[in-house]
Measured scan of single mutants.
Amino acid sequence: MISLIAALAVDRVIGMENAMPWNLPADLAWFKRNTLNKPVIMGRHTWESIGRPLPGRKNIILSSQPGTDDRVTWVKSVDEAIAACGDVPEIMVIGGGRVYEQFLPKAQKLYLTHIDAEVEGDTHFPDYEPDDWESVFSEFHDADAQNSHSYCFEILERR
């Protein structure tokens, strides 16, 4: 099963200049909980913004210009990325925008964090048809001392 995991502000903004323009430790914990011990696929820009392999996960970098870091697996196509994951129950696609666009048609599940923030962004989550998805989990949280904005975790499964 292919799943996408993303944090989205208003207007589906997911990033600005290779960074997330908010401070939500709870979302980072949600991300870790849902990706640990699963292969993660990301684009080169996302890889560069993280700066290191995510521990406890097979890191697969999709790029037309593969790098030389041998701590991760470099691939040039969506099919190659899927094959590099091996026989696993769930593959997690973690961004960025172009990689989400490439995998959305193949995805069966979306793990979304909806952030109540209007922020400037240069990267967006692809538009998706809500009628194609069923919400199977939703959990709202107010902003607090650690988390700069209110947010809602949601899991959607393709109908």
Score class of each variant (00 low, 15 high):
Ser63Tyr: 03
Asp69Thr: 08
Asp11Thr: 07
Pro105Leu: 09
Ser64Asp: 08
Arg98Ser: 05
Val78Ser: 12
Ile91Leu: 14
Asp127Met: 14
Cys85Val: 09
Pro89His: 09
His114Arg: 14
Phe140Lys: 14
Leu28Met: 04
Glu139Val: 09
Glu101Ser: 08
Asp132Lys: 12
Asn23Ala: 15
Leu36Met: 10
Pro21Ile: 03
Glu90Val: 02
Asp87Trp: 09
Ile82Arg: 04
Pro25Val: 04
Glu48Gly: 15
Ile41Met: 04
Lys106Gln: 07
Leu8Ser: 03
Gln65Val: 14
Ala145Cys: 08
Glu134His: 10
Ser148Val: 00
Leu24Gly: 15
Val136Arg: 11
His124Thr: 11
Asn59Ile: 14
Pro105His: 12
Ser64Gln: 15
Ala143Arg: 10
Pro66Tyr: 09
Val72Arg: 03
Pro89Gln: 09
Trp30Asp: 03
Arg159Lys: 10
Val136Asp: 07
Trp30Pro: 07
Ile5Pro: 02
Asp131Ser: 04
Val13Gly: 01
Leu36Asn: 13
Ala26Ser: 02
Asp79Thr: 14
Glu134Tyr: 11
Val136Leu: 09
Asp69Arg: 07
Asp79Val: 11
Arg71Phe: 09
His141Thr: 05
Asp122Pro: 00
Ser64Leu: 15
Asp70Trp: 10
Ile5Met: 00
Phe140Arg: 14
Asn34Leu: 08
Glu157His: 07
Glu129Thr: 08
Thr113Cys: 07
Asn37Phe: 11
Pro130Leu: 12
Ile82Gly: 01
Met42His: 01
Thr35Val: 01
Val13Asn: 03
Gln102Ala: 11
Lys76Val: 14
Ile155Val: 07
Pro55His: 14
Ile91Gly: 12
Ser77Thr: 15
Thr73Tyr: 13
Pro21Leu: 03
Val88Thr: 12
Leu36Ala: 03
Pro105Gln: 11
Ile50Glu: 01
Leu36Tyr: 11
Asp132Trp: 09
Gly67Val: 14
Thr123Val: 09
Asp142Gly: 09
Ala7Ile: 04
Leu110Phe: 06
Ser63Thr: 15
Tyr128Ile: 13
Arg33Gly: 03
Gln65Cys: 15
Ser148Lys: 00
Lys32Cys: 04
Pro53Glu: 13
Thr73Ser: 12
Val88Ser: 11
Pro130Lys: 12
Tyr128Gly: 03
Asp11Leu: 04
Glu157Pro: 02
Tyr151Lys: 03
Pro55Asn: 13
Pro21Glu: 01
Pro130Ala: 13
Val13Thr: 11
Cys85His: 04
Gln146Met: 09
Tyr111Thr: 00
Pro105Lys: 08
Glu139Phe: 06
Gln65Leu: 13
Pro105Gly: 09
Pro130His: 13
Arg33Ser: 14
Asn59Tyr: 02
Pro89Gly: 07
Leu110Cys: 06
Glu17His: 02
Ala84Gly: 05
Val75Gln: 05
Met42Leu: 15
Ala145Val: 07
Gly121Thr: 00
Val119Gln: 12
Ile60Val: 14
Pro89Lys: 06
Met92Gly: 01
Lys32His: 03
Pro130Ile: 13
Val72Trp: 13
Trp74Asp: 00
Ile41Ser: 02
Pro89Ser: 07
Asp11Gln: 15
Leu4Pro: 02
Glu17Tyr: 02
Asn147Arg: 03
Pro66Met: 11
Met92Val: 12
Leu24Val: 15
Leu156Cys: 05
Val40Met: 13
Ala29Cys: 03
Phe140Leu: 13
Ala81Ser: 03
Ile60Cys: 10
Val88Ile: 13
Val78Tyr: 13
Pro105Arg: 09
Val136Asn: 09
Phe103Asn: 00
Arg12Tyr: 13
Ile91Thr: 12
Val119Asn: 12
Ala19Ser: 08
Val119Tyr: 03
Arg33Thr: 15
Asp131Gln: 04
Gln65Ser: 13
Ile82Leu: 08
Leu8Ile: 00
Ser49Ile: 03
Ser138Met: 10
Ile60Arg: 01
Ala26Cys: 02
Asp87Gly: 11
His124Val: 11
Ile50Arg: 01
Val13Asp: 01
Ala145Phe: 09
Gln146Ser: 08
Asp131Gly: 04
Gly121Leu: 01
Gln65Asp: 12
Pro53Trp: 14
Asp69Leu: 09
Glu157Ala: 09
Gln146Ile: 07
Arg52Ile: 14
Glu154Cys: 14
Gln108Asn: 08
Pro89Thr: 10
Phe137Trp: 07
Gly43Leu: 01
Pro55Leu: 13
Val10Trp: 02
Ser3Cys: 00
Lys109Ala: 07
Glu129Ser: 11
Ala117Trp: 03
Ala7Met: 00
Ile60Gln: 01
Thr46Leu: 00
Val78Trp: 13
Ala7Thr: 03
Val88Glu: 10
Arg71Pro: 11
Tyr100Ser: 00
Lys32Tyr: 05
Glu129Arg: 12
Phe140Ala: 13
Cys85Pro: 04
Gln108Asp: 07
Phe140Thr: 13
Phe153His: 06
Tyr151Trp: 07
Pro55Gln: 14
Ser150Tyr: 06
Arg71Glu: 13
Asp122Ser: 02
Cys85Gln: 03
Gly43Arg: 02
Ala9Thr: 15
Arg159Asn: 10
Glu80Asn: 05
Lys76Ser: 12
Gly97Arg: 05
Gly67Glu: 15
Thr123Glu: 02
Lys76Tyr: 12
Thr73Arg: 15
Asp127Leu: 13
Met92Asn: 02
Ser150Lys: 07
Arg44Phe: 06
Gly121Arg: 00
Gly86Met: 09
Asp131Lys: 06
Ser138Arg: 14
Ser135Pro: 09
Met20Gln: 00
Trp30Ala: 05
Tyr111Asn: 00
Ile60Asn: 01
Ile82Gln: 05
His141Glu: 04
Arg71Ser: 15
Lys109Gln: 14
Met16Leu: 05
Glu101Asn: 07
Arg158Leu: 05
Ile41Ala: 04
Asp11Met: 05
Ser49Ala: 12
Pro89Met: 14
Glu134Thr: 07
Leu24Lys: 01
Val72His: 07
His149Gly: 03
Glu120Ala: 04
Leu28Ala: 02
Gln102Gly: 08
Phe140Trp: 11
Arg52Phe: 11
Lys109Trp: 10
Tyr128Ala: 03
Glu90Leu: 02
Val119Thr: 14
Met42Tyr: 15
Lys32Thr: 04
Gly56Pro: 00
Pro53Gly: 13
Asp131Pro: 10
Ser138Gly: 05
His114Thr: 10
Asn18Trp: 05
Trp47Glu: 00
Ala145Pro: 07
Asp116Arg: 14
Val75Tyr: 05
Glu80Ala: 07
Ile41Val: 15
Ile50Leu: 15
Val75Ile: 15
Ile14Gly: 00
Phe103His: 01
Leu28Trp: 01
Ser150Gly: 06
Arg159Pro: 12
Gln65Met: 06
Asp127Thr: 12
Gly56Tyr: 07
Trp74Val: 12
Asp69Gln: 07
Ser77Ala: 08
Lys106Met: 06
Val78Pro: 15
Ser77Phe: 14
Ala84His: 12
Leu112Thr: 01
Asp11Trp: 03
Ala83Val: 14
Trp133His: 00
Ile94Gly: 01
Asn23Met: 13
Lys32Leu: 10
Phe140Val: 14
Val99Ile: 13
Gly51Gln: 11
Pro55Cys: 13
Arg159His: 09
Lys58Thr: 08
Pro126Glu: 03
Ser49Phe: 03
Ala84Ile: 10
Pro55Glu: 11
Arg71Leu: 09
Arg52Met: 15
Glu48Trp: 15
Val10Ala: 14
Asp132Gly: 10
Gly121His: 00
Gly86Pro: 13
Tyr151His: 11
Arg57Met: 02
Glu101Ile: 05
Ala9Ser: 13
Ala145Trp: 06
Ile82Tyr: 05
Pro89Cys: 09
Gln102Ile: 13
Cys152Lys: 12
Asp70Ser: 14
Ile41Gly: 03
Ser77Pro: 03
Asp144Met: 04
Met20Cys: 01
Met16Asp: 03
His124Cys: 13
Ser135Leu: 10
Ala29Phe: 06
Phe103Met: 07
Ser150Arg: 09
Ile91Tyr: 06
Lys58Phe: 11
Ile155Gly: 00
Tyr128Pro: 05
His141Leu: 04
Pro53Lys: 11
His141Lys: 05
Phe31Ile: 00
Asn37Tyr: 10
Val40Thr: 12
Asp70Tyr: 13
Ala143Ser: 07
Trp74Pro: 02
Ala84Arg: 05
Arg44Met: 08
Val99Leu: 10
Gly86Arg: 12
Val136Trp: 06
Glu120Leu: 11
Asn59His: 09
Pro126Phe: 02
Glu157Leu: 06
Leu104Ala: 03
Val10Asp: 06
Ser49Val: 06
Leu112Cys: 05
Met42Gln: 12
Glu154Asn: 13
Leu36Glu: 07
Ser150Ala: 07
Asp116Ser: 13
Phe140Asp: 11
Asp142Leu: 11
Phe137His: 10
Asn23Gln: 10
Lys109Gly: 03
Lys109Cys: 08
Phe153Leu: 12
Asp131Ile: 05
Lys106Leu: 08
Thr46Val: 00
Pro21Val: 05
Asp116Pro: 06
Leu24Asp: 06
Ala117Gly: 08
Trp133Met: 03
His141Phe: 06
Asn34Thr: 06
Val13Gln: 03
Val78Met: 15
Pro55Gly: 12
Pro126Arg: 04
Asp144Gly: 11
Ala9Leu: 07
Leu28Tyr: 14
Phe137Leu: 11
